[in-house]
């Protein structure tokens, strides 16, 4: 199963949420929530992050 890993240096700027075509990312002041069940793995959120704080990770 794929999960979205949010790195420790994420600054919650919300750029990822702005480009998510399915509006699956909720950005709070100090946290980020993914609705991964509906994610189609287009990865634009990973692409636009100014600090590369997002990564896809495969878990058992």
């Amino acid at each position: 199963m794929m999960i979205m890993k949010v790195k420790e240096w994420c600054m919650y700027c919300g750029e990822c949420a702005g480009v998510c075509p399915r509006s699956l990312i909720e950005v709070r002041e100090n946290s980020l929530k993914f609705d991964k069940d509906n994610c189609k793995e287009c990865a634009v959120c990973i692409q636009v992050c100014p600090v590369q704080a997002l990564a896809k990770e495969e878990v058992e």
């Binding site: 480009v19 634009v44 636009v48 100014p50």
Partner: peptide, 9 residues
């Protein structure tokens, strides 16, 4: 929703 080509990082 913005396309990456229209969103400055």
């Amino acid at each position: 929703a913005q396309k990456p080509k229209n969103m400055e990082s």
